[in-house]
């Protein structure tokens, strides 16, 4: 804790003893910025996939459909019978038969707007909205079979599960990407720190000859790389947040990609990336410095 405070407060004495290192400063800052930029998008992807998974799970789990496939003469009768069964089924909040216009609208993307619904043997659809813990699907199927033989209950389980699974995997990929980005940042900072330590072998020798402990020497490098990683990550995060904010909205384009973004309080999450990058820089440089100093004669 004391050392972290020393890093944040500047550790000016330790930092000054190592000479400035020119272009490697900008390489470290640039790499950290690039990694943070990618990290923001990985975070946005994870959050979007999570929202999708939750939405699909909630929406699809609470609705189901009953199809009435009966000869046209019996369709109205069986529809009414099915509605009566549904209205008296515990766990069903409401059920209603879709109108011809609604059914046409559903089929329009595939068959066009001027679909002659009367001329086609299209089953009547009943939308069922569940209440509380939902209904007993097997019991409902049995009752429908008895009262309306042409009624088929589709509770969406068959295709809901793979969709939710896909969204969950996408979310996992997003978090794994975030982790890989942070590990890459740690590897990059470790390499840069090792290079700086090797380039300053003479300085390190002088410091040791005048009585410097390894922790003091390490602090000079740790402070430098922590600040560079945090600064670069700050720049990358700001740019990426701007890019995310500039993505088209769902109203304009529609589809999954338009959901890639942050909403409400989730805009605060990317702001954790710069301090996290600073933490990664601190840990990676400290480990690299102490390891390198142990090996130096």
């Amino acid at each position: 804790m004391k050392q972290i405070w020393a890093i944040l407060s500047g550790a000016p004495d330790a930092d000054r003893v190592v000479p400035p290192t020119g272009f490697t400063v900008w390489l470290t800052v640039f790499s950290a910025a690039a990694m943070a930029f990618l990290a923001v998008f990985a975070l946005a992807l994870s959050l979007a996939a999570e929202r999708l998974s939750v939405r699909w799970g909630q929406e699809l789990a609470r609705t189901s459909t009953v199809r009435i496939s009966a000869p046209s003469a019996q369709e109205a009768l069986q529809t009414a019978a099915a509605l009566t069964v549904l209205e008296t089924t515990p766990g069903v909040a409401r059920a209603r038969a879709l109108s011809d216009a609604e059914q046409e609208a559903l089929l329009a993307p595939w068959f066009g707007a001027d679909l002659p619904l009367d001329a086609l043997p299209i089953p009547r659809l009943i939308e069922v909205v569940e209440a509380g813990a939902g209904y007993d699907a097997e019991g409902l199927r049995a009752r429908l079979a008895a009262e309306a033989p042409g009624a088929i209950l589709d509770d969406h389980t068959r295709w809901r599960r793979p969709l939710i699974e896909a969204a969950n995997r996408l979310r996992t990929i997003g978090w794994v990407s975030l982790l890989l980005i942070m590990l890459s940042m740690a590897a990059m900072i470790t390499l840069a720190a090792q290079s700086a330590l090797a380039a300053n072998a003479g300085v390190i020798r002088t410091l040791r000859l005048v009585g410097a402990r390894d922790s003091y020497i390490a602090r000079a490098f740790v402070h430098r790389f922590t600040m560079r990683a945090a600064l670069g990550a700050g720049l990358g995060t700001v740019l990426a947040m701007g890019a995310v904010a500039a993505l088209p909205t769902a109203d304009v384009a529609g589809g999954f990609l338009t959901g890639l973004g942050f909403w409400g309080a989730s805009w605060l999450l990317p702001l954790l990336i710069p301090p996290l990058a600073g933490g990664v820089g601190f840990a990676a440089t400290r480990a690299a410095a102490l390891r390198a100093l142990r090996k130096m004669p």
């Binding site: 000054r16 003893v17 000479p19 400035p20 002088t206 009585g211 402990r213 003091y216």
Partner: peptide, 19 residues
């Protein structure tokens, strides 16, 4: 064994700083 980027005062003070 001086650090060439530091002034003479800073070099002389180095043992104080590192301790």
């Amino acid at each position: 064994q001086f650090l060439d980027h530091l002034s003479i005062t800073q070099n002389v003070a180095l043992p104080l700083a590192v301790s």
